[in-house]
Amino acid sequence: MEIVAYGVLVDEQPLLRAAFDTAFDGRHELRCLGLFLNRDTAPTAAGHEVVLSSVNDTLDAEVLRALAEGGTRMIAQRATGFNNIDLTAAKELGLTVARVSYYSPYSVAEFAWTLALAVNRRIVRAAHRTREFDFRLDGLMGRDLRGRTAGVVGTGKIGAAFAAIAHGFGMRLLGWDIAENPDCVALGMQYVEREQLLAEADLVSLHVPLLPATHHLLDAKTLGLMKDDAILINSSRGGLIDTGALLETLRAGRLSGVGLDVYEEEAGVFFLDKSLEVMTDERLARLMTFSNVLVTSHQAYFTQDAVSQIAETTVANVADYLTGRSSDNTLVAPPAP
């Protein structure tokens, strides 16, 4: 059987193929495509029982229906998030859906800190200057993190890893979540209401999933609670922040730094080369104009360790499907025989 994978990145492909070959030993073939799965590309999946999707694929009811009509029976998402998949439609169509429920939390937590340190110490601006042999320090002043307050919004595995690094810097820890994480409490984290966290934190980092309850978790009202000189980091999901409200906050001269590895309208933009095109997304283009904003292209997870784990788990999900098993990764179980 040939299995097709969409949105496969250049550096991801050898790791995905290695995991595939190890698991199936030539019993199945893997076809890797760089294009993303959407209503225009769905016909290319015809005849493939198993499809490996990426987080930037569009798997709404229309696309899922096209896949099902083409013979697809199983979708294995190569990511933890699955807000791009209409699970209700998948169940109605008899499609099995699985995801990667766990991979290295350190990849994302460490990258979130990379963004935080870069915006705090103006690293991008400094690097651009020195490449032009401009060695002035004007406008490059940052702040010590030791003794300041880190607000961790979402204290699961990634949030806990972020908190551990903050603890290493000697920061006071505030947390907000539906349940307390004992590992974070052991670090000295104080769990507080979201409003208090936003008002007191010098650095706010988001580590919650995108759900209806967390969509635009940071809007005009909640952004207004933050300190004028606070740093905001989002390496989770773009929809957690109301981009329009963030732009208004930045226009008002508030927030000393913003690091974004995700963007709420990133589909069709991130992972692609748009350098020779006119950027039609005016809000994204406007974000890029602020010198205290750093935007990266959803790369927080992108370490050899994490991508290898994602590939291995994805292949295991496919093996489970082929043998009629389910696991904690299963989002929509196979229909009853």
Rank of each mutant, 00 (worst) to 15 (best):
139 G>I: 09
116 A>I: 13
131 R>F: 01
120 N>I: 07
203 L>C: 10
178 I>L: 14
152 V>L: 05
121 R>S: 09
142 G>M: 13
141 M>L: 14
124 V>Y: 01
147 G>M: 01
188 G>V: 09
148 R>L: 10
207 H>W: 05
107 S>A: 15
169 F>P: 04
198 L>Y: 13
117 L>W: 11
187 L>D: 09
162 F>P: 00
109 A>W: 00
177 D>L: 02
201 A>H: 03
189 M>S: 04
122 R>A: 06
151 G>V: 09
179 A>C: 04
107 S>E: 00
156 G>I: 11
186 A>R: 15
147 G>F: 05
140 L>Y: 04
140 L>F: 07
117 L>E: 07
188 G>S: 11
173 L>Q: 11
107 S>M: 06
125 R>A: 13
150 A>T: 07
160 A>E: 12
206 L>R: 08
188 G>D: 12
151 G>S: 09
116 A>R: 03
173 L>F: 11
105 P>N: 12
207 H>P: 01
162 F>H: 03
205 S>M: 13
106 Y>C: 01
198 L>P: 08
182 P>E: 00
200 E>F: 05
144 D>M: 08
137 L>F: 10
162 F>M: 07
157 K>M: 06
193 E>H: 09
166 A>S: 14
186 A>Q: 15
123 I>L: 15
132 E>W: 01
157 K>Y: 06
184 C>A: 14
129 R>G: 05
181 N>Q: 09
146 R>N: 09
152 V>F: 01
136 R>Q: 12
127 A>C: 02
165 I>G: 03
198 L>H: 10
136 R>G: 15
199 A>D: 13
127 A>N: 08
163 A>C: 08
175 G>A: 13
183 D>R: 15
158 I>F: 01
115 L>D: 06
108 V>R: 04
